[in-house]
Amino acid sequence: MAIYRYDSSFEGFLSCIFDFYEQKPNTLSIVPQHHNALSFFDTSEDVITDPEKAQRVWKGLKQKGGSETTTAIHRAFLSEIEGIEDILLSYIIKCFKEGLSIKNYADSDVLRISKVVKMVGREKHRMDAFVRFRETKDGIYFATIAPDFNVLPLNSTHFKKRYADQKWLIYDLKRKYGIYYDLHTVETIELQLSSDINTTSQASLYFTQEELQYEELWQNYFNSTNIASRKNMRLHVQHVPKRYWKYLSEKKPS
């Protein structure tokens, strides 16, 4: 089996698709470069990311399947789920060959992709909800997140539209990059973050006094609006899974 290794960018993945159609290997698996589970009999090749090739594949897909198809492929890709590249490849082959619709839910690849797309969409929506900005001393609304999937690129429009009049920065601690809005455009940035930025004891170093007060007001509000006689922790955790608690100021132990 042939194996293409790529730089884990979306353009890189699309370049692999391009090379696949050029070289036509019988069976192919596409894996990110940091993935090193190669078996002895496989031949592996590092695919160089080529924006032009990527663009051609993207255009072709759009022509064949419409923007619903390309959106689904992009979102499923952002899941970073192991093996998602191969499922997408298998779908893309069928899409180009037989025009398989992304809505043909009786096809197992389509069904799998649609489930992953839904998971990614849900995570994106969660980040729209769970980001908690804190105003830093230099006037930037700052938040850290660590989403299950690489959804930050999907969040950018939402926050740009909403917080048009304030500088903000959302940083993905897991993938070590963030998006920063400077009142004009949103840019992707990488930062050296101090490790104590999220600790309560050091908060007054980075954040304004007012910030800490509003955080306390929010915590208070959160507790007062709860109806104790309807307590339902199972439902609570279902909606706000514990892995997100560390970034939610209302769930921090006070």
Partner: peptide, 23 residues
């Protein structure tokens, strides 16, 4: 959002948190 002001409610609703009663 209008005139680069604050906020936008043209999208879907968002639940920012859930209290312990699950609301």
């Amino acid at each position: 959002n209008k005139n680069k002001g604050l906020g936008d409610s043209s999208g879907m609703g968002i639940c920012h948190s859930y209290t312990e009663d699950g609301r």
